Simulated scan of single mutants.
Amino acid sequence: MWRPRPPTLRLLAAVEVILARYTQLLPISLRQCFYAAVSDGVLEKTERAYKRLGEAVGMGRRSGRIPWEAIRDDTGTCVEPPPTFTGPEDFHTTMRRAAQRYRRDRQEGQAQVLELWSESAGTTTQLARLAEPYGLTVRSGGGFDSLSGKHEAALRAASYKKPLVTLHLGDLDPSGVHVPRALAEDVAAFATTHDCRTELARIAVTEDQVARYGLPSAPPKPTDRRSFTASGTTQLEALPPDRLAALVRTAIEERLNMSVYAQVMERERAERAELLRELE
Results as ranks from 00 to 15, higher is better:
T137S: 11
V57G: 03
L43W: 11
R103P: 00
L147P: 00
A128R: 10
Q263S: 13
S259N: 11
A111G: 10
V42Y: 05
E199I: 04
L247F: 07
A270P: 00
T46C: 12
G142L: 09
S227R: 09
S146K: 05
L215I: 03
P220E: 10
Q263E: 15
P81Y: 14
R101G: 08
R202P: 00
A230T: 04
M1C: 05
P81H: 13
L130W: 03
G142H: 12
T77H: 10
A20T: 06
T229P: 01
A270S: 09
G214V: 07
P6G: 04
D171Q: 06
Q110M: 14
A121M: 05
C78A: 11
V177G: 01
L247T: 12
K162T: 08
A189G: 03
L256D: 01
A121Y: 02
D208H: 10
E207Q: 14
D224N: 10
R5C: 02
E254R: 13
A13D: 13
N257V: 06
L167S: 08
Q263R: 15
T250N: 06
K162N: 04
R277F: 06
E152V: 14
A99R: 03
M258Q: 09
A70F: 10
R61H: 05
A37R: 00
L114M: 09
A111Q: 09
I66S: 02
A99C: 11
P81E: 13
A153R: 05
T193M: 12
K45R: 15
V42L: 06
T234K: 03
D40S: 12
R249C: 08
F85D: 00
R5F: 07
P83Q: 11
T94H: 12
L19V: 06
Y22P: 00
L215W: 07
L147V: 10
A153D: 06
T137I: 12
K150L: 12
T125K: 04
L25K: 02
L236W: 02
R21M: 08
R104M: 15
K150Q: 15
R243Q: 14
A49Y: 06
L164N: 02
A201C: 13
Y213F: 15
R48Q: 15
G64K: 07
R52I: 05
T234R: 02
D171C: 08
K161D: 13
D195S: 14
E44P: 00
E89T: 09
D208P: 00
G142C: 02
L169F: 08
C196V: 11
M1A: 13
V138R: 01
T94D: 06
T206S: 15
P240N: 05
S159Y: 04
L116F: 10
V179M: 13
R139F: 15
A157C: 09
P81R: 11
G122Q: 03
R202E: 10
L127I: 08
I203D: 07
R272K: 14
R267Y: 06
D105Q: 11
L127E: 06
A189K: 07
P27Y: 08
L116E: 04
R62S: 06
A262V: 03
E115R: 14
L147E: 09
R72P: 00
F85A: 09
T75G: 07
E199H: 09
